[in-house]
Simulated assay, not measured.
Amino acid sequence: MGKFVPFANEADVLNIGRLMVENRVDRVTLSGDVDLTMDQAGLAHARALHRLLGEVLAKLERAELPAKLAPPVVDTVDNPFD
């Protein structure tokens, strides 16, 4: 697993099996799936997930967190193709 620092930027993407982990400054999004099989590949995937979730948990525990994250501000722009 490369250097993925949770909540550090809006660009990093990490793949563990077919599980995609997207980094954002206010969230980490997991989508897809991964099979934790009883073999060396499954062990590697489980270790990668464990490491990632440990880093996410540590970052969250160190932060002063709101009760609930406010929804993002969304700007609407005119369609340039109209």
Rank of each mutant, 00 (worst) to 15 (best):
V34S: 02
F7V: 05
N9H: 06
R18F: 05
V56E: 07
L19I: 04
D12C: 15
M20I: 09
P72Q: 03
K3C: 10
K59Y: 03
M1W: 12
R62T: 02
D33L: 12
T76L: 09
L30E: 04
E55C: 11
N79A: 06
A58K: 14
A8I: 07
D35F: 10
V73Y: 02
N79Q: 10
A48C: 00
R18Q: 10
N23M: 06
G2H: 15
V5H: 06
G42M: 03
F7W: 13
K68A: 11
F7E: 11
G54L: 13
G2S: 15
A8F: 07
Q40N: 13
D75T: 06
L52Y: 05
V28Y: 13
F4I: 07
E22P: 01
V74L: 09
D82N: 15
L60K: 12
A70S: 00
V77N: 04
N9R: 06
P72R: 11
A58H: 12
E64R: 10
T37I: 14
G42L: 09
M1P: 11
V34N: 06
N79L: 04
D12V: 13
A46Y: 14
A11H: 15
V77T: 14
E61P: 11
V5P: 03
H45S: 10
D26I: 03
N23P: 07
L30F: 15
F4A: 08
K3G: 07
V77S: 09
P71K: 05
R62A: 14
V74A: 02
L65V: 00
G54M: 14
H45I: 06
A11I: 13
A67W: 05
G54N: 13
E55H: 15
G2P: 15
K68M: 04
S31Q: 05
R27S: 12
R47E: 12
M1S: 15
Q40Y: 09
S31A: 01
P66H: 06
G17F: 08
P80T: 00
P66K: 04
E55R: 15
G54H: 12
L53A: 01
S31C: 00
V74P: 03
V13Y: 02
L43A: 11
P71A: 05
H45W: 04
A67G: 02
G2L: 15
E10H: 09
D12Q: 14
L36I: 15
A8M: 08
K59L: 11
V56F: 01
V13A: 09
L43N: 00
A63T: 03
T37E: 15
H50V: 03
E61H: 13
R51G: 14
H45K: 10
N79R: 12
A63M: 04
E64Y: 07
V74H: 01
L14S: 13
Q40H: 11
A44P: 01
R27L: 05
I16P: 00
H50C: 10
H50E: 06
G32A: 07
F4Q: 09
A63F: 08
E22H: 08
T76R: 01
R24K: 05
